[in-house]
Simulated scan of single mutants.
Amino acid sequence: MKLTSLLLAFAATALPTLAADLEPTLGKKGKLLLEETFSGPEVPKGWHANTGSLRIVEGQLHAGEKSSDKHIGAFRHRLPLQDCAVQVEFKLGAMRVINLGYDPAPGELKKKGHLFSVVITPKSWSLIEHNDKSNPASKTKVHAMAKTDFAPNMTYTLLLECRGSEVVAQVTGKEPLKANAPDFHVKKPGLVFRMGGKDGQEVALDNVKVWALE
């Protein structure tokens, strides 16, 4: 039993990880606006599932899509933001796609729908500007994209920063992605996470930190 316990403990410490704190390139980290480690038994207050599922598993937030919703899984955390940096650790698992991005705050733009997102799949990642759902002629624009593998059981750190019209996304072990668009400067009402996969598949998120960017 003692040998088994030692082997299990070693396996836990040897899990693959590329998690590490990242530093922004568009400014300096200012006031810490949010820090969440998901250490409690329940989903913390303020994390709201619009579609899909949210649950705490061994100190991580697990999120997935439900086919019964007939919509990609989506959850939000309300937190007024503008120039900011968001850092989160993630493990993709079997998910086909995960997004982290923003909506424009009400009254900021004459636009319906999301503002921009960093999109991660098992084989690529990108920075996209979402289409205007009120305009049938509007199309989603890919500002930056790179083909690269994301190992399903590897823990990565993502840092998404925005300042003025500029956006930079960093992931440990990857070359950064950059984008620039006039609408990006607007106020944002909070974080938007989305994830797509089959029932029972989940992305694991941990150690979310948000700073004002100075």
Rank of each mutant, 00 (worst) to 15 (best):
L127C: 03
P122W: 03
R163Y: 12
L159G: 00
P152D: 12
E161P: 10
I128C: 05
T157E: 01
V142L: 02
K147C: 05
L160T: 08
D149I: 03
F150Q: 01
N153D: 14
S138D: 13
E161S: 04
S126I: 04
L127A: 03
L158S: 06
N131D: 06
K133N: 15
L158D: 07
I120L: 14
A137Y: 06
K123V: 02
V119C: 06
T140L: 09
A146W: 00
I128V: 15
V119Y: 05
P122M: 00
S124L: 02
I128H: 05
T157Y: 00
G164K: 14
T121H: 05
K123G: 04
L158T: 06
E129S: 14
V119F: 00
Y156I: 01
F150C: 00
K133E: 13
A137D: 15
A144H: 05
N153R: 10
H143I: 06
T157D: 02
V118I: 14
H143V: 05
S117K: 14
P122A: 09
F150T: 02
H114P: 10
D132I: 09
E129G: 09
N135M: 06
A146Q: 15
S124N: 13
D149R: 02
K139P: 00
K123S: 04
V142I: 09
P136F: 03
V119T: 15
D149K: 08
R163F: 11
V142E: 03
L160Q: 09
E129P: 01
S126P: 07
V119W: 02
T155Y: 00
K123H: 14
S134Y: 06
W125V: 07
F116H: 11
A144Y: 02
P122D: 07
C162Y: 06
N131S: 07
C162T: 15
T148V: 08
T157P: 05
L115W: 11
T148G: 06
K139M: 09
K147H: 05
N131K: 15
E161V: 07
A137M: 10
K141I: 12
E129F: 10
L115A: 09
D132W: 08
A151W: 01
F116K: 00
T148S: 11
N131M: 03
I120C: 10
K141Y: 11
K141H: 13
I128T: 09
W125P: 11
N131R: 13
H130R: 13
P122T: 13
L158M: 15
L158P: 11
P136H: 11
S117H: 15
V142K: 03
D149L: 08
P152S: 04
A144N: 06
N135Y: 04
S138F: 12
N135P: 01
S126N: 07
T121S: 13
A144G: 01
D132A: 08
K139V: 12
T121G: 11
E161C: 07
S126L: 07
N131L: 08
T140D: 03
P152W: 08
G113P: 12
S124I: 01
F150N: 01
H114G: 12
T155V: 11
K139E: 13
S134C: 07
I128S: 07
L127G: 05
R163T: 02
S134N: 12
I128N: 12
P152T: 05
H130S: 10
T155Q: 10
S134A: 15
